[in-house]
Design a protein around this nucleic acid. Sequence first.
DNA 1: CAGAATCCTCACCGATACTG
DNA 2: CAGTATCGGTGAGGATTCTG
Lengths: 103, 103
Amino acid sequence: MLTLVALADGRAMRFNELRRRLEGVTQKMLTQTLRALEREGLLTRTVYPTVPPRVEYRLTALGEEIAELVLRIAEWSASRTEQLRAARANFDRRAPHPRPLSA
Amino acid sequence: MLTLVALADGRAMRFNELRRRLEGVTQKMLTQTLRALEREGLLTRTVYPTVPPRVEYRLTALGEEIAELVLRIAEWSASRTEQLRAARANFDRRAPHPRPLSA
DNA sequence: CAGAATCCTCACCGATACTG
DNA sequence: CAGTATCGGTGAGGATTCTG
């Protein structure tokens, strides 16, 4: 999801560059996610046989299509953070059916 | 995700009705998902104190906003199933770096 | 730099039984 | 009907180490 957003501007990005942009993601998960997206045909992985190695990831046409849709959701949720936060606070305050963990 | 899509037409739906529409979902997961969505303020849960009980779920205005965005992604992926399938097949055939589990 | 390999934990989820 | 409660396994993912 956010990996797609990080690439949504159409630029090619290197592995650690992505990793920095998606702060908090582990190397394992990023690798795994990129492989999955590559497998779906949403991005291409290009290895330049230099030393040190350089690997670039770039969205395919297919990838850009869905990245745009995902981006819209990201923007929507960013624009609604306050309402969402308020809803959560309200829900937790009124603490419905399953009794909360209030001792 | 799909729970939002199932409610995207704006109708109120009952628990087992949703469960049937989302075939494969367990009762536990559906309950859990509905609670989460309710907590985010994306849907309302209305209990009619009849016997047997009747509980209706309906998207809020906020929920309809995001449901529409999610619906677009669902439609997109439905429209691209063949390309996605082909990409997967191709990827698996060429089986990149991490050696596949081919014995 | 861009990973692969290994180990290990715990929380996710299914299955099952019970209830107002 | 619409849940809650409990148990148990399993696999996702973190941490760490190693490499071309």
